Simulated assay, not measured.
Amino acid sequence: MAATDRVAELRRPLIDIIKRLPPGCAISLSGGLDTSIIAEANLPCPTPELAAQEPVSHAPITHAATPLDLVRDTSLLEFTVRTLGSFDPMEIRNSDAVARVLMECKKLGWENVATGDGTDELFAGYSFLHKLEPQALKNYLVRMAKIMRFSAVHMLEAIGLKVWQPHLDPKALEFALTCTKRLSTGG
């Protein structure tokens, strides 16, 4: 099956999943492919954003930019550490940025927030995954599907908002686990 056929095969259920988001659902838009796909569904959603407007500049969305200066502003670090129960530097650094966007959602009165959680993990979006042999990659993805967790879930619950993770819907998850890695033979 051609790669374009596989993309079309995923697109249909993913659009259906995204269209089931509640009206007025915000998107925690990082500018990456995962959240841009959600915004590209042309839903009229407000979007607090971490990084980018360009990927979805033509979508009917309202941008509420959340500037990040993690060096100078540590006001949410205590909330992040307490909520996640972790002192892991990588998790705290990433989750602190997420907390800022989620607090902005709360401040602006949004009750539901969609994230791109799971896309890179399930569709091998991280560069270190590209080097794995096909079976090792498959084993990694199956394992991740069982154990992955995302900070947005715990932080949204802590501040009283509902998280929506379209890429983790059972239909999207099932599709992701059918994907394989094809080795290039050159030429």
Rank of each mutant, 00 (worst) to 15 (best):
K107E: 14
Y126M: 09
T185N: 13
G32L: 04
G160I: 09
V163Q: 13
P166C: 06
H154T: 02
A41G: 04
P67Q: 10
T80Y: 06
A2S: 14
R20F: 00
G187K: 10
P166L: 02
F150S: 06
M90R: 08
T66R: 11
D169N: 15
L137R: 09
V101L: 14
I18K: 02
L84N: 04
K107Q: 14
M90V: 12
T66Y: 06
D120F: 09
V113S: 02
C25A: 13
L70G: 09
E78Y: 09
E78C: 08
R82S: 10
A51M: 13
R6C: 07
R149G: 12
L173Y: 01
I27C: 08
L132G: 03
N42I: 03
I61N: 04
A51W: 05
V153C: 05
S127D: 00
D120Q: 08
A59G: 02
I38G: 01
V113A: 04
G116N: 05
L102N: 04
A41N: 01
D117M: 10
G186N: 09
P170V: 03
G31P: 09
Q53H: 13
S75P: 11
A172H: 01
G160K: 11
L173D: 02
V101C: 12
A41C: 14
L156K: 00
S36W: 01
T180K: 11
R82A: 10
L14D: 00
N112W: 13
A3V: 09
D96C: 08
V163H: 09
A51C: 13
L43M: 13
L14Y: 09
I92L: 12
D69N: 15
A99M: 06
H154Q: 14
I37Q: 00
F150L: 10
I18P: 02
H154D: 12
L173H: 07
L84F: 07
C179L: 15
R182V: 14
G160W: 11
S151V: 07
Q135R: 15
V56N: 04
V98G: 00
E54R: 15
D117A: 15
L173S: 10
K181G: 06
A158L: 08
E54L: 14
N139E: 14
N94S: 11
D34V: 06
L132M: 15
L21I: 05
L33V: 13
S57N: 09
V113T: 06
H167C: 10
I38Q: 00
N94H: 12
E104I: 10
L173M: 14
G186L: 10
T115S: 15
I61C: 13
P44F: 03
T47K: 05
L68V: 15
L84Y: 06
A3E: 06
I37D: 00
V153D: 15
Y140F: 12
E111A: 12
V163T: 09
R20N: 14
E9L: 13
A158P: 10
M144R: 09
L137M: 13
S75C: 12
D96V: 04
L132T: 01
L177R: 11
P13Q: 02
K138F: 06
A97C: 12
L108R: 15
H63L: 13
H167R: 03
R12M: 07
L161W: 08
K107D: 12
K19A: 11
D34L: 07
M90T: 10
L76Q: 05
P170Y: 01
R143H: 11
R182G: 04
G85F: 01
M144N: 03
T178Q: 13
N94Y: 10
L29E: 01
